[in-house]
Each structure stands twice: as structure tokens, then as C-alpha cells.
Design a binder for these strands. Structure first.
Lengths: 231, 231
DNA sequence: GCTTAATATTAAGTCTTACATATTCACCTA
DNA sequence: TAGGTGAATATGTAAGACTTAATATTAAGC
């Protein structure tokens, strides 16, 4: 009897709807035929007939791909494959209030890892313009009087670093994750803030002005140490 | 005349379908009401009636959320919110053959950044077990005779590092991106391989055995230098 | 003959209805 | 009380009709 119950519990996992299957068929179709962005894909009715399902089901599958930015459709021209934004899917899921504490923490760790490792991209792609922008932020931070203003500078500083790295995908990744971090930052700001890292933003900028790429990772590690110690 | 044509080109961008709107409504609904995983959401017919659209349109929107793992549905129990896998959306989009060269390169850079920054997680969470696993891989690599076997060791080594980091989200991120990297690795393997980084896998393991977290980032940088120089 | 305007065609978007299927709940019998 | 039977219910699937917008074709005008 208990075995039968266990089997029942397994059943829903293996369950796939027609829409799921059509979605997979379409993915395979695109890959196998190596269809490129701009190329047309078959009409809804053609797909429905070819796979022996209702147009309804096909539309559900197409709707999913369209949401991810994999296809676009025009009223008569039919549908075409598009170059998807790789981070689109992430953006669609991530919302701070839905994610649980555990995942939020893991994403924050991910951020720390990224910033320590960012050095080589920064030194290869830094520009006068970016460095001056960082200078301005440090200046603003010094003059800041309220906690809110300081946190804004904090966010601006680190966002500018990602911008400097000259990697759009990475920047986009950061932009998507930012709202999650803001929650953590708020949490951290309530903690003892005298234990701030011994390396300041100004110190980091100084290193970036130099050509000493070796110094960056450990400087950033020290800067982030208050956060790292919380792991 | 040309102005009219330009306007035409802008038109489709603003276009949103009913399914898009319902999807957004549902997202808002979930957030505003702070619905938690396990909580039920309204029936398809209720949503359709409330928003004044057909059940068909509602199903398209729900289908999208279901694909992302945000909701699950049982035949009679209705639908419930689920804790989504944050990396699910990424997994659904990323396929090496669809991504263009430019994006693939950016993702590879992302990987390099991650591995250099990984140190602190590794030193905090390393275990005897993991270190021994790394030892075994280094051993295997020494004995390897074919290029294929060497590449497999390379992949195993770095995958084990992510495993050691003790961050499931990060590991999953790496697993999803791996197929993209394999393409790049294959490409790189055709290049001059005498210019391999001066720091070997064995050196990295030695550092991990020590408690010298400061040494890690620059060691990994040197190890990855052949790749970094290609940026 | 060429351009312009009206019309037809096409494919996606939407709506309605109907039925299938699986799960829950309540009733009802042994 | 246990267990089986059937009704109720919500999702899954199918089919047909209509709307809308973009393209293709034809017709009209010069």
C-alpha cells in the first residue's frame, strides 16, 4: 500500500503536457536545422498539423519562446528567430520578494566573487573617463551627510566598476541582481559599521590609476572583508 | 515619406498582446499580495473573468510562468506558487549554437572573472574530501596521453573548484555555461599550447592546502593568463 | 507604362464551446 | 469503521469562428 502511494508521488514529476513536448520539438528543430536569427519558422497551423496537436497547444509553446525573446511574430510575415538576450530569462525570474533568504545569500556571494575577480577586465579596459567618474563618486561620498546618500554612492561606485569592465553581459547580470543586493545592503547597514574594510573606495581608485593589476584582487578582498566575514 | 516609414518601424516594438498583459498582471498580483511558495493562485476561469479575457489567453500567460518554474498545477487542486530555480531561465535560453560569437566571448570572460574571485569561498569551505579529489585529477592529468583526456581533466578540475565553493547557485550557473565554454576551449586548444600558464593545477592545489588565501587570486590569474591575454 | 488606390489573401491574435482526464470529496454500502 | 463508488471540479486538449494587421494582387487613373 505504501509502495503504491510512493508510485503516485513519482507520477506527477514525469508528467509532461503536450505544450512541453511541442516546446522541446521546436527547440530541437531550431538547433538541428541550425536556424539563424532572422530566419523564418513554420506557421502555427503547419506546426500543429505536423505534430498532430491543436493550434492551441502550439501557441502555448510559441508563447514561451516568445517571452524568452527567442522568436518574434508579425501578423502576416509569420514568425522569425531572433538573437535572444541571454540574461532575459534570469530577469524574468528574479524578484527579491519571491526569492528565499538562502538563494539571496548565494547571489550575494556570487557578487562578491565577481567583484574580486573583476580586476583583469578593469585594467584592460579602464579609461580616463571612467576613472574620473569614480573620483567624482568618492568625492561625493566624502561630502555625504546622510546614510541614504552614502549607500547611493556605494551602489554607484560598484556599478561603475561593472561598467568599466566593458562586458555588456556581465553588466546586465549585475543590473538584474542589484535589487536583490539592495536588500542585503540594507540588512548589513544595520550591523556594526565601524568594522568597515580597511581598504576604502579611494584606495581602490588609486590602484586602478596605477598599472598594478596584481594589487587589485586582494585590495578588493580587504574592501569587502566585512561582507566576506559574514559568510 | 521616409518619416512615415520610420514610424512604421517603431510601431511593432510597443505592441503587446493580451497574454503579455495578463502575464504582467499575474506577476504584480503575486508580488503585491506577497504570495509565498505553496500558496494557491486563482483558477484559470476566475482569472479570465476578472481580467475580461478568454481562458485561452490566460493559459498562455500561465504556461510561461510554469515553464520558468514559478507555478505548478494539479488537475483539481488548482495551481500553486513554487520556489523557482533562479537559473532556470538562463538554462532555457543558453544554447551554444544559437548564441553569437560576441556573447559567447562575454560569457567566457565571465567565467574567468568568477574563477579568479572564487578564492574566499574555497578557503572557507574546502574539505579534505575535495582536496583529495583535486589531487586525483592532477594525478590523472599527469598520466594522460591523449589531448581528449587532458581536456577532460581540465574541465573536471575547474568543475570541482565550483563544487568546493559550496554555493549551489554558482555551481548551477557554471554547469549551464559549461557547454558554451567547451566551444571556446576547443577553439583555444588549437592555439599555441606551449604558452600555458606558469601556474599549474598542482600549484593551485598546493595553495588550497595551505591557508594562504592571499596567494590564490594572483595564482589563478597566472594560471588563466593565456586566456586573459586573448581578451 | 508607371504610379497609386482598392481589394483579396494570409497568418497571428482572440473568443467560444465542448470534451477528456485526473483528483478530491462525499456518500453509501458491507 | 473501512473501503469502494460516484459526483464535482479544475486543468489539459481540441476544433471552429472571427478579428486584425500586413502583404500581395488587381484595378484604376494619369
Amino acid at each position: 500500500m505504501s509502495i503504491e502511494k510512493d508510485l503516485f508521488k513519482l507520477k506527477p514529476i514525469a508528467y509532461t503536457t503536450m505544450a512541453d513536448q511541442v516546446e522541446n520539438h521546436l527547440r530541437e528543430y531550431i538547433i538541428k536545422r541550425s536556424i539563424k536569427p532572422g530566419d523564418p519558422i513554420p506557421k502555427e497551423t503547419e506546426i500543429a498539423q505536423a505534430l498532430g496537436v491543436s493550434r492551441n497547444v502550439v501557441r502555448e509553446a510559441l508563447s514561451r519562446l516568445r517571452m524568452l525573446g527567442m522568436i518574434e511574430s508579425r501578423k502576416k510575415r509569420g514568425m522569425i528567430l531572433t538573437q535572444p538576450d541571454v540574461m532575459k530569462g534570469l530577469e524574468l525570474i528574479i524578484h527579491p520578494t519571491i526569492l528565499d533568504e538562502h538563494v539571496r545569500k548565494q547571489l550575494f556571494e556570487l557578487r562578491l566573487v565577481l567583484e574580486v575577480g573583476l580586476g583583469d577586465l578593469l585594467f584592460r579596459r579602464k579609461s580616463e573617463e571612467h576613472l574620473k567618474k569614480l573620483d567624482a563618486i568618492v568625492e561625493r561620498e566624502h561630502k555625504a551627510t546622510t546614510q541614504i546618500e552614502r549607500i547611493r554612492c556605494e551602489v554607484d561606485f560598484h556599478s561603475t566598476l561593472y561598467e568599466m569592465a566593458g562586458n555588456e553581459t556581465l553588466k546586465r547580470f549585475q543590473d538584474i541582481l542589484m535589487p536583490v543586493f539592495e536588500y542585503v545592503v540594507e540588512y548589513e547597514s544595520k550591523l556594526d559599521h565601524t568594522s568597515v574594510g580597511s581598504v576604502t573606495h579611494a584606495d581602490l581608485v588609486k590602484i586602478l590609476y596605477s598599472n598594478n593589476a596584481e594589487a587589485y584582487p586582494n585590495a578588493m578582498r580587504k574592501h569587502l572583508m566585512p561582507h566576506l566575514d559574514h559568510l
